[in-house]
Simulated scan of single mutants.
Amino acid sequence: MWNKEFQCVGNETHLVYCPRISHVNQTCSHANDASVICSRFRLLNGSSECSGRVEIQVLGAWGTLCDSRWDLLDANVLCRQLDCGFAVSAPGGGYFGKGTGSVWTDTFHCKGTEPHLGHCPVTALGASQCSHDNDASVICSGRSESLRLLNGESRCDGRVEISLRGVWSRVLDDQWDMNDASVVCRQLQCGAAEKAYNPPKSERGTGPVGLRRVQCAGNETHLTLCDKSTSEAAQAGIAEDVGVVCSGSRQIRLVNGAGRCAGRVEIYYNGSWGTVCDDSWDLSDSNVVCKQLGCGHAINATVSAHYGQGSGPIWLDDVNCSGNESDLWACPSRVLGQHNCRLKEDAGVLCSGLFCECFCKGFNGVGRCLWRSL
């Protein structure tokens, strides 16, 4: 057990060049083992350290990432990984200039909540003919961002934490309401507030308390502009952790199919996954789902819980898409949550992206078998 304290400036080329201090009386066990996670990603040519062309290091050499499958969810994870807040946009087309070296077409399948791109499922397609005209980029909100949401299904729902003096801290309140939640959603660029709640005991935080009893009018641009009490000024009371669900948290997925591009249609709304009723469900509706998920076009629109019954609420009924909508909730339908259905009427989709081809990558085309969508 090495118990000397390193006092590195950060620009040393080797750890042995850092000053060290010995602590003779200090006892340490392997429960205190130090660790580090190194990033093989960087941003170049941006106006700040939190924007730029995405570059990836493979076998010691830096290259760029093809923008064909790079999206805002992947970009959001990279921003969090680099301590740069959240992703504002994920421009392609060499937005920050052309890089050099290989162009990698690895496809990340991030939910957007992962702490590191290494936690996302990835389809490793290797280097390709994608040119540097198609280099992927990201613009992050920056390190001044002071709020984050934890334990949700996206970056736009979950328990609220605030960074004060560089320390992430809890927000506690006994009268947390939609005015307060509206400010959080606006500050995080997550749309409108859909729900203000107190998380259950199992999801409460354990860190320091940053704010207590926040009282927002609802039009403030930042939570710190609301009337509030600091943790030092108000320690008494029964205030609890607070959470929000913003409209930007809405998601869609396919469940119980052979892959991510087939299955029962489920929507994440108001903090819960629910289903879609099959009344009027057709190929136009299914096409919107397939397009939204990056799964090609619809081959079949299934009804009568073809992929099994769900267990949550039924969120949509009488959906009537033209097929050109960007997402399912942009289609005409009943008000979210209103229906006259039962779970045995759950709608489903089979998309063309389910069908894949296998190719070999390696010496003379012989190597490991990789899959990619047609």
Rank of each mutant, 00 (worst) to 15 (best):
Y269D: 06
V289Y: 08
N270Y: 11
D282N: 14
I267Y: 02
A262M: 08
R264V: 07
K291Q: 15
G296P: 08
G274K: 06
C277V: 07
H297K: 09
R264T: 07
A262C: 02
D278T: 02
D282E: 11
V288G: 03
I299F: 12
Q292W: 04
C295T: 12
Y269W: 10
L283A: 00
D282M: 01
W273N: 06
A262L: 02
D279A: 09
N270T: 06
T302M: 03
H306K: 13
R260P: 15
N270S: 15
R260S: 14
C290A: 10
S272M: 14
A298P: 00
V289C: 03
S272D: 15
L293P: 06
C277D: 12
C290Y: 04
S272G: 08
S286E: 01
G294T: 12
G263C: 08
I299R: 14
G274E: 05
S304Y: 10
A262H: 00
A298F: 01
A301P: 04
H297E: 14
V265T: 07
D285S: 08
N300F: 09
G271F: 05
L283S: 00
T275I: 05
G271H: 13
G263M: 08
W273L: 04
D279R: 11
S272L: 15
R260Q: 15
K291I: 04
C277L: 12
V303G: 00
S280H: 15
T275R: 13
G296I: 09
A262P: 01
C290H: 08
V303R: 15
T275K: 11
V276S: 10
V276Y: 14
T275H: 12
V265W: 07
A298W: 04
Y268E: 05
A262T: 11
A262E: 15
A305D: 06
Y268P: 01
N287I: 01
N300P: 01
Y269T: 00
C261E: 09
A305I: 06
S286P: 00
C277E: 11
E266L: 09
V288L: 05
A301L: 02
V276N: 14
A305K: 03
I299K: 15
A298Y: 07
Q292M: 06
L293M: 13
A301T: 00
A305C: 00
N287M: 02
D285C: 00
H306N: 11
H306D: 12
V289A: 08
W281S: 03
S286C: 01
G263H: 10
W273C: 02
E266D: 12
L283K: 02
A298G: 02
D282G: 05
V303C: 07
R264N: 07
K291W: 06
G274F: 14
V288I: 06
D278M: 00
V303P: 00
